[in-house]
Design a protein around this nucleic acid. Structure first.
Length: 60
DNA sequence: TAGGCCATCTGGTCCT
DNA sequence: AGGACCAGATGGCCTA
C-alpha cells in the first residue's frame, strides 16, 4: 500500500545511484569496443584488469 | 531456446 | 518509526 510504494520508490532511487556509479567507472576504463556498452559485471572485471595493468606499469 | 543482463518488488536486518 | 542496504524471486529483452 502506501508504505510499500514509498519503499519501492526509494529502492529505485538507490539503484539509480549505483547505476550512475557504474557509468562513472565505465568511463574510466579504456574503451575496448567503443560503441558497445560494458555490462555491470564486465565493467567490474575490466576495472580489476585495468588496475592490475596500471600497477604493473608503475612497477616497471 | 537457453543463458546473460537488467529492472523491479519484496521482506529481512541494521542504522539513525 | 522510518530509511538504507541487501539478497532472493520474478519477468522482460536480447543474442549466440
Amino acid at each position: 500500500y502506501r508504505q510499500r510504494h514509498a519503499a519501492n520508490q526509494r529502492e529505485r532511487r538507490r539503484m539509480r545511484t549505483i547505476n550512475e556509479a557504474f557509468e562513472g567507472l565505465r568511463e574510466k576504463i579504456p574503451a575496448v569496443c567503443h560503441n558497445k556498452k560494458l555490462s555491470k559485471v564486465d565493467t567490474l572485471r575490466m576495472a580489476i584488469r585495468y588496475i592490475q595493468h596500471l600497477a604493473q606499469v608503475i612497477r616497471s
